[in-house]
Each structure stands twice: as C-alpha cells, then as structure tokens.
C-alpha cells in the first residue's frame, strides 16, 4: 500500500508556486465584509506561509466560511486587501480575478461536480478551457490525479454513480488539475457519511505532507490537531485566538474558545 501510494505521488506531482517556501503566499490585510448593515468579517489580518496548513474553526455564523470564500473572490469584501501568490484580488477586473483563481483551488462541502460530465471530463474541463491544455497531456494528467486520489478506474463513470466520498475525491483531483498554489477546503467532510470521511481526509493529509498550502474550515478537530500547523479560532467575525494545535486545543486562553471546545464533546 505504501509503495503504491509513493508511486502515484511521484506520478502526479504538485505544482510549484511562485512564492518561496516559508514566505507568505496568502496575505490578508484589514479585511472587512458586510451583508448590508450586518458586518460578518470585522477586520481580518492573516498571513499564510507557503506550505502551511491552516485549520479555521468556530461556531457557525462566526464568519469562517465567508473568510475562506473571500480568498478566491466568491464573496466580495468592502475593505482591506488580499493577495495570493503575489496576485492581488481586484473584484472589478475579470482578468485579475481569473489570474488569482488560477492560483487558488477550492473544494466545497457539496462537492459541486458537474453532473453532466464524466469523472474524467470533470477533471479535464477547466485545464482544457482555461489553460488550453492539449488533450493528450490533459488526459494523462487527469488519469494520474484520479489515480492519486484512488479513483483511476472511475475515469469514465458519471458523478451520480459515485459515493459521496468518491465524489469529493474527484473534486480534489479536479482542483489539483489546475495546479493551484493554495487549496481552500470548505467543510469538505460535513456532507459525508461518517464511514466515508476517512478516505477524503487521507487524501488531504497526503497533500499537506507534500507541502501544499491548505486553508480548511473544518469540524474535524482530531484531523485539525493532527495535520494543521496553525489553528485559527474565529468568533463574531474576528480571529479570536490563533496558534499551534497543541496550544489551542491543549491550553485555550479565551472563554469563548473554551466554551466552543467543550461544546464539541
């Protein structure tokens, strides 16, 4: 098993970002976002270093998903600035948004595979359209990536023939096919049956081990503790507490985090 895993890893290498290892790849400065008069992000400052794995935790409504969706421009924010791999986020410019989104992959809670396309076509569509990748290279890469997530034999299957866990792994392969510098995971196991969570998390863990920069909103505290370099606890639109998993889970400082952690058990 470990040998097979190593082989597939070697076959489907991850892209190298422009940012050097250890330098900040995502920079969020004084970011504020509101829906009408309701401010949901109240000034977020966050630098993510290349290769860092960040887990964002917090109650629902704390703004954690919104923050994640701001990073690739799915949510528009009113104040502050944001760059990814030195590409600034400019909402008004479709060109700049696409440049930025080329560097950011996103995986969703509800998978969002394209139901009218086969698994292979799901993975190949964006590289073909956006990067004008030629069919042969594209197919080869798609097969490698599907192999990497353990679904090589599902290339021609349709999404609705797959289990939730399999669909989510296809979604990961689809995101990786665009060679992102950063991967955003928005509660990617929340819609899965408990027995399917493990297979998805194993794939994410392998990415983390290979140096992929990951930002994940998650409710899987054990996974966050095991994989994350830094955990961020969000509360009422602010970063309320942040630090290593040992610090945060082992010795929470604020009453809100203590309460949040105890509510999980």
């Amino acid at each position: 098993m470990s040998l097979a895993a190593e082989q597939t890893t070697a076959n489907a290498p991850l892209a190298t970002p422009h940012t050097n290892v250890g330098a900040p790849i995502v920079r969020i400065t004084a970011l504020r976002k509101s829906y009408g008069s309701n401010e949901v992000l109240k000034g977020i400052d966050l630098d993510v270093k290349r290769g860092e794995v960040i887990a964002i935790i917090g109650k629902s409504g704390s703004g954690k998903s919104t923050l994640l969706r701001c990073i690739n421009g799915l949510e528009v924010f009113q104040e502050g600035s944001l760059t990814v791999d030195s590409k600034p986020l400019i909402h008004e410019s479709a060109m700049a948004m696409r440049e930025l989104r080329l560097r950011v992959g996103m995986i969703f809670q509800s998978f969002n595979l394209f139901p009218h396309l086969s698994v292979g076509r799901n993975v190949m569509l964006a590289p073909q359209l956006v990067k004008k990748k030629e069919t042969q290279a594209n197919t080869e890469r798609a097969r490698q990536l599907l192999d990497r997530v353990g679904l090589a034999e599902k290339f021609d299957a349709m999404p609705d023939q797959l289990s939730g866990g399999q669909q989510q792994r296809v979604a990961i392969a689809r995101a990786l096919a665009m060679d992102p510098a950063v991967l955003l995971c928005d509660e990617i196991t929340s819609a899965l049956d408990p027995e399917l969570v493990g297979e998805v998390l194993r794939v994410v863990e392998s990415l983390a081990n290979e140096g992929m920069t990951l930002l994940m909103v998650t409710h899987e505290m054990n996974f966050a503790r095991k994989v994350a370099d830094r955990v961020i606890f969000m509360h009422q639109g602010r970063v309320h507490e942040a630090g290593s998993p040992e610090e945060l889970f082992g010795n929470p400082q604020t009453a809100e985090l203590k309460q949040f952690l105890s509510s999980l058990h």
């Binding site: 479709a94 969703f108 969002n112 009218h116 569509l125 964006a126 359209l129 956006v130």
Partner: peptide
Amino acid sequence: GQWEASKSLAMSFGQLLTHVILPQ
C-alpha cells in the same frame, strides 16, 4: 454550487455558461 465551482476553476463567464450551466 455549479457557478461557484466553475468560477473557482478560473473559467470565464462565457466558458462556464456554455460548458457547465447551459448544457444542464
């Protein structure tokens, strides 16, 4: 989610419309 997934993959408005949304 179909719009969001397509946008996240850096597709343009025209591409996501012709390849993802309209076929469905």
